[in-house]
Design a protein around this nucleic acid. Structure first.
Lengths: 246, 246
DNA sequence: CGCAGAATTGATACATCTCAAGCTGGGTGG
DNA sequence: CCACCCAGCTTGAGATGTATCAATTCTGCG
């Protein structure tokens, strides 16, 4: 199932599109060289499994391009997404032998992988890596807690609006700051994945998307392309402070 | 509201009950001395606010004894607990000026506080602190993700059972490993706090507690003291793998 | 063109919320 | 010492939001 992975040869970190956002962000030239010694690139195609819960982890790494999901599954098949991995996000848990979650590529995916044991050694000897990973982990913890509020206390409509707002903000951030007045973006995931993200069924996701469209909060071009004519309205629908940004 | 805090004088880290589990766990004698230079103790009584979301943070720190909760609130009053802080747990986010959550003492609480700016400097210069904080943050992230599965995909009954199982395990761990056959513990929180933890109403919590009692999964002595005659049954009720531990 | 996966829509069932009424136990003041 | 009180908790009846089951309808692609 995972044997048709494509392993690429090394390439220089200097050219890397995530050089200044990933776990290597604080590294100087010497430290980068140490990372390069233990790294390799690996390509996954859309739908392919990166690692399954319970499997032995041979590497940790960064998403270079593409999107992956982190999910947890109960024996009866109920699944909950617990992370959405975008470029520069870190995958894997140092000092743990087995994966806790399923990681699946939802688009074609390029990973920068570090062999696990030597990376763990670098964490002991290279403060710039540990410091950056701490910073990123604290950010993820905040995101997870924000998400807990969405899962625990928001209505289906608010959940959808929250997800759309968060994706809109991230694509805006990537595209550089700019017009807040009108946002257009593509959903990187299916309705089913949205449902798994939000603790809903895909039918409810579909119904609420339609409702938001009917009410003019969003417009759809096909099923995946979303435009938000008035971000204030979306923010209000998400239950965020009547749209008053902090 | 927070002016009746009790600030205590320094005391030696060597005697500290959380010395080997908290953020200082990896520190040697020299490093402890550096921490002692920026630390102070602060006592809060049950119900008192430790810090409010949006306030400027003057310190980060560790719970020494007692229990505190981390909560997030929407403007209309809906609240979601996003963390339950027990002894040795870390409070606060280095490199962030303002608190993101409300922290409230639910029992009398002793905090070991580090002045924020000097602590941030120590993170730059003392790898043992950064490494330990990274480890703790990764653990919390895992806990948050486990919790997301509970919030998003479990039924009310399973949510309650999951919470009881997790509290039972933690009190067992504290009391030292031992008899797995029969667990007795006190709930450190009210039904309302349980509801905020699980994304339920307090009425639903109460009903499900009664249901678990009727079915013999738990026994109650008063409202707070729980005994679990058969942990396998509780684990099954929590939706965990038919009770087969991993 | 036609097929398969993805998405929408409808009808109904059910879990949880909401509103409301009582209960319980521990503390306080008369 | 008792009566009262109050926060915490339980229980009930009805309302409501979301899940479930079941057709269709889209959409992209070979």
């Amino acid at each position: 199932m995972t044997k048709d992975r494509l392993v690429l040869l090394s390439q220089h970190c200097g050219d890397c599109p995530i050089r200044h956002r990933a776990v290597c962000a604080r590294c100087d030239a010497d430290e980068l060289r140490e990372l390069e010694a233990v790294k390799y690139y690996q390509k996954f195609h859309a739908g392919q499994s990166v690692i399954n819960a319970g499997e032995r982890m041979e590497f940790v790494g960064s998403v270079v391009s593409g999107v992956a999901t982190l999910t947890q599954t109960l024996e009866d098949g109920r699944t909950q997404m617990v992370g959405l991995l975008l470029p520069s996000d870190f995958v894997g848990r140092p000092n743990r032998a087995h994966a806790a979650y399923d990681v699946v590529a939802t688009t074609d995916l390029m990973m920068c992988c570090f062999r696990k044991a030597p990376f763990e050694k670098l964490l002991e000897t290279t403060p710039h890596i540990t410091q950056r990973l701490l910073e990123m982990t604290l950010d993820e913890l905040d995101a997870a807690r924000e998400w807990m509020l969405v899962l625990g206390r928001k209505t289906a409509r608010e959940k959808i609006a929250s997800l759309l707002a968060s994706i809109a903000n991230r694509s805006n951030a990537d595209a550089g700051a700019g017009c807040i007045s009108r946002q257009v973006f593509d959903l990187p995931i299916t309705r089913e994945a949205m449902a798994d993200y939000l603790g809903l069924t895909l039918e409810t996701v579909s119904r609420q998307m339609s409702a938001l469209r009917r009410e003019g909060v969003i417009t759809l071009n096909g099923t995946r392309n979303v435009t938000v004519p008035d971000p204030t309205k979306l923010s209000a629908a998400a239950g965020n402070d009547a749209g008053i940004a902090v």
